[in-house]
Design a protein around this nucleic acid. Structure first.
Lengths: 223, 223
DNA sequence: ACCTGAACACCGTTCAAGT
DNA sequence: ACCTGAACACCGTTCAAGT
């Protein structure tokens, strides 16, 4: 018992907490990541996380930053700017949806960590490569990142709510209106079939195209 | 005691529950709207809401739909399509931010109610008036509505987190990075001042302009 | 000096027990 | 037949009490 005295239990490396949080967040369950489940997973007291993170939101930020770091590594280095931004958009959409319990909050949390720095730098350099002015680089970084993250968070929320991957033709963005008293809304009646066939991934694709087209049209003007 | 027997307490009109929920949701507090606070507000049992709504999410949907209904009434009837869509965007951004406790969830909930029907019809008719094809009307409705709602929900979340309206120059979209080891990220270094001066309302304005410009460019092609 | 975990003040929701 | 509210299984977080 003498030799093991000083470090009988590991001192609970914060990186281990983040790793466990990332693992737990893969479950499509609103409560997959809680202080108690984290303690159970790590075999420590449920309140141990508060010695390393000021709040659960801070831990969620750290988990998202780790996810950003790993996602940034998946992006091929040399691609034309538009293909690279499309790839970044799709990869980040996917990792957010794959970690729904933290992805659902990505729309409202900046991580302020090294993973965020890496991906922001990557997006900015694509926009520079596209030939945008300094002002436009910053503006379109903001528009692009909020577009990707907000649609991905919404899709993460949908995955949590349905609690399973339902077939694409049942994941409706808008439900058909139940009541037939829609004479007051002729445009809604006219487009109701189109609206009910929308789904979140398609709306994300459309939104991403709109932003990338806007960037491309600015570069065409410049050259 | 005989005469008041049948309806001593009011039967708790669901519309009264929704009204109370809308009032409570004005507080910039994550827990402003709960079953217990609603019961306290209405003078009834905390679980009374579950006799009229299947879950708290369903009540939040009903509250948002009531907010949509009132917001739709604020939109001037006859305006050119672009000015009208800008007005709709600004009004909806504002009412979501003014009801942060439910607005924070608007990005992930469709209300499927009459308020939603009214505003969807209004947006669709603007897009028809702009001269878009049927397919483009549906697509750009989706892009436009998700843009407005996601930025507004993010701003509602920010209001809740700060718990008070802080001066605009302190509401940073991205925090300046704390560590100076940013040599690996030259684009981030180059644009760091621009990035830290971004705020949510400005990013919303930029995003809205991008979408409206995309619509306008399609109409210019058509005519 | 550092860590632990009992405890506080809440949640959303269910259902046995009442009127 | 309808409604009630006690109770269940959780939350995030704090801080008095220990080692």
């Amino acid at each position: 018992m003498g030799t093991a005295r000083h470090r009988r239990d590991r001192p609970l490396d914060p990186a281990k907490i983040v790793e466990a949080a990332v693992m737990l967040s893969k479950q499509p369950d609103r409560h997959a990541l809680s202080a108690r489940r984290l303690g159970e997973q790590l075999g420590v007291d449920p309140t141990a996380v508060y010695r390393h993170f000021a709040s659960m939101d801070e831990l969620v930020k750290a988990a998202l930053d780790a996810i950003w770091r790993d996602a940034a590594r998946l992006i091929p280095r040399s691609l034309p700017w538009r293909a690279k931004l499309e790839t970044i958009g799709h990869v980040f959409f996917q990792v957010i949806v794959e970690h729904p319990a933290v992805g659902i909050d990505a729309y409202r949390l900046s991580t302020n960590g090294p993973g965020e720095e890496a991906i922001v730098d990557m997006v900015l350099s694509c926009l520079e490569q596209a030939g945008l002015s300094d002002d436009h680089v910053v503006d379109f970084y903001a528009v692009l990142s909020s577009t990707v993250i907000s649609h991905a968070s919404a899709q993460a929320a949908e995955r949590i709510e349905t609690h399973e991957v339902v077939p694409p033709d049942e994941r409706r963005w808008i439900e058909p209106p139940p009541n037939p008293v829609l004479v007051r809304f002729p445009s809604l009646v006219r487009h109701i079939d189109g609206l009910t066939s929308l789904d979140q991934p398609r709306v994300f694709e459309l939104s991403l195209s709109v932003v990338l087209d806007a960037i491309e049209s600015l570069t065409a003007t410049a050259t």
